[in-house]
Amino acid sequence: MSAPQFTGILAAVVTPLTEDGSAVDAAGVQRQADHIIGGGIHGLVPGGSTGEFTTLTLGERKQVTELYVEAAAGRVPVIAGTGALSTAETVELSVHAQKAGATAVMIVPPFYDAPSYEELLAYFGAVSEAIDIPIMYYNIPSASGVHLTPEQLAKLARETAVSSYKDTGGDFAWLSAVQQQHAEDITTLNGWDTLTFAALASGAKAGVWGTASVIPRLCADLYDALAVRGDLHAGRELWAKIFPICQFLESHNYACGIKTGLDLVGVSAGPTRRPVLPLAPEHRKEFRALLTAAGVETADDPVAA
């Protein structure tokens, strides 16, 4: 099995839904893919937290993977979120993702009854035996309850098909320890919006970033400035525009914030599923102002209209 070295910004993408939220909107998936890839983003990650995977049926999760792979049409890699509460369901989703053409899978540990480390090794080991594409470990301790040491994460990578990890832990010292001490075992991808500048500047090769779904060109430009050209001055100028947007998104339900942003830039993806409610009008107005301040062209707000 070859393990691709993910580089660039991989957009954590939404699950577009029909107006009543009852079904996946296939045309909306194509619209998202074209908007994001056209903005210079380097990959798509459906089926994660931004994609509201916990509200989707098993069939819908498979459908979303298929639709994004089809919409990407080989232009960029697609890393499908396949984590679930049981090993059997995670294996089923991961096998399906491989057959559908995903480049890799992203797997969050079971997130209700947090597994022990031995159980985690067995869980990822079972998926590794079932598929021939790499696994991205989704580190999100606040949701999973799983807190690994850098050494444990490196061992997980050595003993399974885990080759990279998305870090949504918010602990930059922890990320740095993995990045500096275990780079031979596992590739670091930042997944905490407001740490993006710091992670890229310190050498992270990639990031999985929901904000890239809304403002893909600014996010791609930030990566180019920091990770490709090493231009800190240009990176700081871009970050001054992007950071307030990231800060805003982290202060609200994230998937709802991203879908609101997509409304505001004219690439609507429909509502979030209940129990998540729409952002209040004053927050939509605040978000529009942040986008305008960043130089992002906004569309007529379909909610305000």
Score class of each variant (00 low, 15 high):
3 A>M: 04
4 P>I: 05
5 Q>F: 13
7 T>H: 10
10 L>D: 05
12 A>T: 10
12 A>M: 13
12 A>I: 10
19 E>G: 08
21 G>H: 08
22 S>A: 13
29 V>L: 10
34 D>M: 00
34 D>V: 03
39 G>Y: 08
45 V>K: 04
48 G>A: 04
48 G>W: 04
52 E>K: 00
53 F>P: 02
56 L>R: 04
60 E>F: 15
61 R>M: 05
63 Q>Y: 13
63 Q>K: 15
64 V>K: 02
68 Y>C: 10
70 E>H: 09
71 A>E: 09
73 A>D: 14
73 A>M: 05
77 P>W: 06
80 A>I: 08
86 S>K: 12
90 T>Y: 12
91 V>G: 12
95 V>I: 12
97 A>S: 02
98 Q>S: 07
98 Q>R: 11
103 T>F: 03
111 F>Q: 05
116 S>N: 11
116 S>G: 12
119 E>F: 00
122 A>Y: 04
122 A>C: 06
123 Y>G: 05
125 G>L: 08
128 S>C: 00
132 D>H: 13
136 M>W: 03
139 N>A: 09
141 P>G: 09
142 S>L: 13
153 L>Y: 04
156 L>D: 01
161 A>H: 12
161 A>Y: 06
167 D>L: 06
167 D>Y: 05
169 G>F: 11
177 A>L: 10
178 V>Q: 07
179 Q>K: 02
179 Q>R: 07
182 H>P: 02
183 A>F: 02
185 D>M: 01
194 T>E: 13
199 A>D: 00
200 L>P: 00
205 K>C: 06
208 V>C: 00
208 V>I: 05
209 W>N: 11
210 G>L: 00
214 V>R: 06
215 I>D: 03
220 A>C: 01
226 L>P: 11
229 R>G: 03
233 H>E: 14
235 G>R: 05
237 E>T: 12
237 E>K: 12
241 K>Y: 00
244 P>R: 04
245 I>R: 04
250 E>T: 15
251 S>R: 15
251 S>W: 06
254 Y>Q: 15
255 A>V: 11
255 A>R: 07
256 C>V: 14
258 I>C: 11
262 L>Y: 04
263 D>T: 03
267 V>R: 07
269 A>Y: 01
270 G>F: 15
271 P>T: 07
272 T>C: 14
276 V>Y: 11
281 P>F: 12
283 H>C: 04
283 H>Q: 08
287 F>H: 14
305 A>E: 11
